[in-house]
């Protein structure tokens, strides 16, 4: 549904331009300081235009660490596998929950919901994954623990099915002799593209931004994802800046990456998503069309 009159459209566009600026301006400050010469940054402070342009931070990052390129590889692989598995599991789980004729739907909804409130904590999860399933230092460690299914997405998906899949349609298909998997595949999924797109986006972002699993389950640096590498650099800085470093030994304050480098680190982590997202969005928009046509 769109607003048809011109002044309305102009007003909307103005609002969104403002929102866009609000969202992106702080990010631009970040980008700008990653391109600013370090000494200038210390002396003149932060500004939206680099006082003195410098690529030092990026050169430093890529020279000092080919790992960044490798890390991208790991991240992309994990994000792809994780997202596909996750959307598959989530959809298969959410669909029965949305069927009124499925007798255990309340129980399983509660079952899902319960996982969102209670968790055993890190240590028991860690012991289970490493001692029972032996996933430490494998690619699976970046995919399985925690991220694969999220109660929130299951419930979102269930609500979407509830609201958007007419019972009559399912019933009709059933009378036509269509099996449950067939109904899901031929009827439900095509109607659910917006939600599928949204959830893949959210799950994908979750995998892309995840560094916790690397922190807990990976000690072999070859398997570090890009975010894990970046996060390690930042947490080292924080450690060295706390007085703990100097209380253990003098001379502990080693070569700290400069502020510019920290900013560059952040930019490097986000940039690929900004590049990929619009392509992804194409499907997102397609999904919207399909969703709108239904009825």
């Amino acid at each position: 549904m769109v607003v048809k009159n011109k002044s309305g459209q102009i007003a909307l566009n103005i609002i969104f331009t403002l929102l866009t600026i609000a969202a992106v301006a702080p990010f631009l400050l970040l980008v700008s300081s990653s391109f600013t010469d370090e000494a200038t940054l210390v002396r003149d402070g932060y500004s939206f235009l680099p006082g003195k342009f410098s690529l030092d931070a990026y050169i430093y990052l890529f020279q000092s660490s080919m790992k960044i390129v490798k890390g991208y590889g790991i991240t992309i692989l994990v994000t792809l596998i994780g997202t596909v598995l996750s959307v598959l599991f989530t959809t298969l789980f959410a669909y029965p929950l949305s069927r009124k004729e499925f007798p255990f739907r309340y129980f399983f909804s509660f079952f899902v919901f319960f996982t969102m409130l209670f968790n055993g904590g890190l240590v028991p999860s860690y012991m289970m994954w490493t001692q029972t399933f032996h996933i430490k230092n494998t690619l699976w460690a970046l995919i399985f623990p925690g991220l694969l299914m999220n109660g929130f997405y299951i419930i979102m998906m269930r609500s979407f099915f509830n609201a958007n899949i007419p019972d009559a349609l399912v019933e009709a298909a059933r009378i036509d002799g269509c099996g449950e998997y067939g109904i899901l595949w031929k009827i439900v999924l095509p109607l659910s593209k917006p939600m599928m797109a949204t959830i893949s986006l959210m799950v994908g972002l979750g995998y892309w931004n995840d560094w916790m699993n690397s922190l807990y389950y990976i000690t072999d640096e070859k398997l570090f994802s890009i975010q894990a590498i970046l996060n390690t650099i930042i947490s080292n800085i924080q450690f060295l800046q706390s007085s703990q470093g100097s209380s253990v030994a003098s001379g502990a304050a080693a070569d700290l990456p400069s502020v510019g480098i920290r900013m560059a680190i952040a930019v490097i982590g986000i940039l690929p998503i900004l590049v990929i997202y619009p392509f992804f969005q194409k499907y997102f928009v397609k999904g919207i069309v399909v969703g709108g046509v239904k009825g």
Binding site: L215, Y216, T219, T232, I234, S235, Q238, F239, L240
Partner: peptide, 9 residues
Amino acid sequence: VATGNWQQQ
């Protein structure tokens, strides 16, 4: 293990 991650890991 990076010092920043030390405690956790």
